[in-house]
Design a protein around this nucleic acid. Structure first.
Lengths: 226, 226
DNA sequence: TTATCAATCTCGCAA
DNA sequence: TTGCGAGGTTGATAA
């Protein structure tokens, strides 16, 4: 990885065109050729960047005071031109391969936990399968309730209006199947936005709020699904 | 901005929990207190980070060989704990305030161009207004076609299924207004995903592909809307 | 401050 | 490769 602090101008031409006027910025060049240009603020998103894989061509500066011009191009033909006026710092570092991030608490985990604890949805409920396939995508959980009726369950970390739309499409489709119909719908989430709740009720979809910590507390590692 | 290269472990506890095993990484600390932890690969997204505003507390390492422990906490109570085992490089740089990025070619620009060139949608068409207000949000363009019928136009850079859902909700609402009904719907985009096109046709919504470069070529700077 | 929506989204998975 | 959905989404704008 190369690390530069330099006064520079930047021009991106690709999915859009964008320009950065001359200022002092950080330029990171990763081993895979990707380039990040950061200012001393904002969040993790760079001001400008080029995603790998890409090639960097360095040529001498044209205008007075420009040290060099970097032309970074990727396979899609997008280009990032960095005109370097002044280099304040430059260093190179060997980092090696990163073992990567271990995550916990995402939707997949919620789904695995609820699949193992479908009785949270009602007494006598049983899981038919996770990722029940349909022509328009998989239903998160397909269950049977206490009386044997089919129930499609859509799981979200935070349920918003598009989650209701998604489940509505599934239910429309599933209810055309005489072997399944009638199919109930349940929207299960750690948090359900008011608008989503209103739309769900309007469409006869039940809402269930999941307590992630409590579900994890009842998790049995021996029967864990991943 | 501070720049570090160090062997470190990282633990994030917040909206989820995540852990990075010990490895050599880049740690950037910006002036606003935000922290980015980058590996020598991936795209612009860091392996782990903390968004501003946040406070950094440095304490001595506990285990053998750990130099120091950084505890970064933000207002929401999320924490990032960086256990630094070895510092390979450290430097600090004064960057100043960045003038910021100038963009071109985003949806707002498409909307302005199409508003000035509604005849692209059909002969004799005229614009009623941009951002036509409704109870569920603004319709991008409200037009009248050659025969005087109302047309709601939804503009996207890339139209996907949720764009069709959005326009459908607008049309449902608008068609309840006897002063407007019947209202036609048009989905206009630089690129329309096949699924979006199928769903749109199924609902009687017309699709129009916009050529941004050609539209910009016909743009008259004198009448430009922004 | 909150809600909504776009994004050079990125990232991961599956067909 | 492409499509699709999630994201610690982030970022901008309007209410």
């Amino acid at each position: 990885m190369r690390f530069l602090v330099a006064r520079c101008r930047v021009d991106y031409v690709g999915r859009l065109t964008a320009h950065l006027p001359e200022a002092t910025r950080v330029i990171m060049v990763k081993a895979d050729g990707s380039v990040l240009i950061h200012a001393d603020g904002g969040s993790y998103k760079p001001l400008n960047w080029m995603s790998p894989p890409c090639a960097i061509r360095v040529s001498p500066g044209e205008a007075d005071g420009d040290v060099e011009i970097w032309t970074v191009e990727n396979k899609a033909g997008e280009t990032l031109v960095i005109t370097i006026h002044d280099i304040l710092h430059a260093s190179e570092h060997d980092l090696g391969v990163d073992p990567g991030l271990v995550k916990d608490g995402v939707e997949a985990h919620l789904q695995a936990l609820l699949a193992a604890q479908v009785e949270r949805l009602g007494e006598g409920w049983r899981l038919v399968r996770r990722e029940w396939p349909t022509a328009i995508g998989p239903v998160d959980l397909m269950c049977r309730d206490g009386s044997g009726l089919a129930v499609a369950v859509e799981i979200k970390r935070r349920a918003e209006i598009d989650g209701v739309e998604q489940l509505t499409r599934y239910l429309d489709l599933l209810n055309r199947d005489p072997l399944l119909a009638p199919v109930r719908g349940i929207l299960a989430a750690q948090e359900i936005k008011p608008q989503a709740r209103v739309l769900a009720q309007d469409r006869g979809i039940e809402c269930v709020v999941l307590d992630y910590d409590e579900m994890r507390g009842h998790d049995d590692p021996g029967t864990r699904l991943f």
